[in-house]
Each structure stands twice: as structure tokens, then as C-alpha cells.
């Protein structure tokens, strides 16, 4: 549910990076903040939450047009992974318009990915949203670790385990080097804005 700011004639929507702790959500956002600095408005806010950091900044997507004459501003967030950050998670997820689920390709994190996806499903349900309907993109992060000889799950296997039912766009990525970060973001923004367009048409 995007918010229309009549004062600035802006539509503010919310894109949240979700995923298990240390899967690379903040690395994604840090890369975006650096690489697309011209589109970033305001500074990046970083809150130290246990096991992870919670990040936030505003982003102006270019070339994606306007909706009803309003500019579009995207608020990018990461969500704290730890269970205890309930109040923070609730605020971040409230009114979410699109989600990037960052999964960890490391074989040892297999179960953590599944649990976190299940957790996302439940948290969305609590807000009356469905994981099958919300704009969602999966990212299989840390592909680069394979070259370092660490056991990494094949993309096909991750696709089967995480995306078999969801069937949403997915991207392999190495957020540390920025590989796949842009693709993931662009696709997530595209889906989010499409869904907003539909919503506004419906409201007309």
C-alpha cells in the first residue's frame, strides 16, 4: 500500500529486503547506495541490530515513469532477521509494496533460508498480505563463494526448494562485488510499480 504525499506530489512506496541473518541484505543496500548514489536522496540510516544491521534510505527510480502525474519515491529497507526485533520488523513491513528475498547460497544456510521464507509468509499473513500476491523477487546471493572453494548450493536446487511454488523472478548474485544487485533491484521495482499501476487503475 503506497502512500500518496500530496504536498510533494509523490507516491512513496516501500521495498523491503528480507532474508535470514547475514545473507547479504545490507550488502545489497550498501551497494545500491554507492552505485546509484545520484538516485539516492538523503543519507543512509544504519541501525545496529543484533546479528545484522537495519538499513534505510530513499531512492528515486529513473525511467520508470510517473503514476497520475506523481513522481515515485521508493523507500528501501532491510528487515532485522532476529526474532526479538518485533516492533522494528512490524514498522518496516507495515504497508510494504514489494519484497526482495535474499537467500544465502552457502550449503550450511539451506535451512535458514527456508525458515526465513516461512517467517516472511507468516509476517505478511499477519498484515493480511499474501506472499503469492505481493511483488516478490528472489536473490540467490554469495555465488562468488564457490570460487573460494566453499560448498554452495546449485541455483537449480535453490530454485526447487524456495521457488517451486512461488514461481517469481530469481537472480544469482554476489552482492559484495555488486553482481546481480542491479538486476534484482530493477526487476523488484518493475513488479512493484506494475502492481501499483494496477492498484491505481482499479481505484479510478
Amino acid at each position: 500500500m503506497a502512500v500518496i504525499n500530496l504536498k510533494n506530489r509523490q507516491i512513496e512506496c516501500k521495498l523491503v529486503y528480507y532474508g535470514p541473518g547475514r545473507s547479504g541484505k545490507t550488502t545489497n543496500l550498501e551497494y545500491i547506495h554507492k552505485a546509484f548514489s545520484k538516485r539516492v536522496t538523503g543519507k543512509m540510516i544504519s541501525i545496529d541490530t543484533e546479528g545484522d544491521r537495519t538499513l534505510f534510505f530513499d531512492f528515486l527510480p529513473l525511467g520508470l515513469g510517473k503514476i497520475k502525474g506523481c513522481d515515485i519515491k521508493v523507500q528501501l529497507y532491510t528487515v532485522p532477521g532476529q526474532v526479538k526485533y518485533k516492533a522494528t520488523r512490524q514498522l518496516v513491513l507495515k504497508g510494504v509494496d514489494g519484497i526482495v528475498f535474499v537467500a544465502d547460497s552457502l550449503a550450511v544456510r539451506r535451512e535458514k533460508n527456508m525458515l526465513s521464507l516461512k517467517d516472511l509468509h507468516e509476517n505478511l499473513l499477519k498484515m493480511g498480505l499474501s506472499i503469492r500476491k505481493i511483488p516478490l523477487v528472489l536473490q540467490y546471493n554469495k555465488r562468488d563463494l564457490e570460487k573460494k572453494g566453499l560448498p554452495v548450493m546449485p541455483v537449480e536446487k535453490m530454485e526447487l526448494e524456495l521457488n517451486r511454488q512461488l514461481k517469481v523472478p530469481s537472480f544469482p548474485a554476489s552482492a559484495l562485488s555488486g553482481e546481480g544487485v542491479g538486476n534484482t533491484l530493477t526487476q523488484a521495482l518493475k513488479l512493484t510499480l506494475q502492481s501499483l499501476q494496477n492498484e491505481f487503475k482499479w481505484a479510478q
Partner: peptide, 16 residues
């Protein structure tokens, strides 16, 4: 601090 920083940090302290 900026508004969002205040909000996110304030809620984090409640959670912590």
C-alpha cells in the same frame, strides 16, 4: 538525528 533514524532506533531499543 533524522526522522527515520529516530524511529528505527527507538523501536530497536524497545525490542532490545
Amino acid at each position: 538525528k533524522s526522522r527515520m533514524e529516530i524511529i528505527l532506533d527507538g523501536l530497536r531499543m524497545v525490542d532490545d
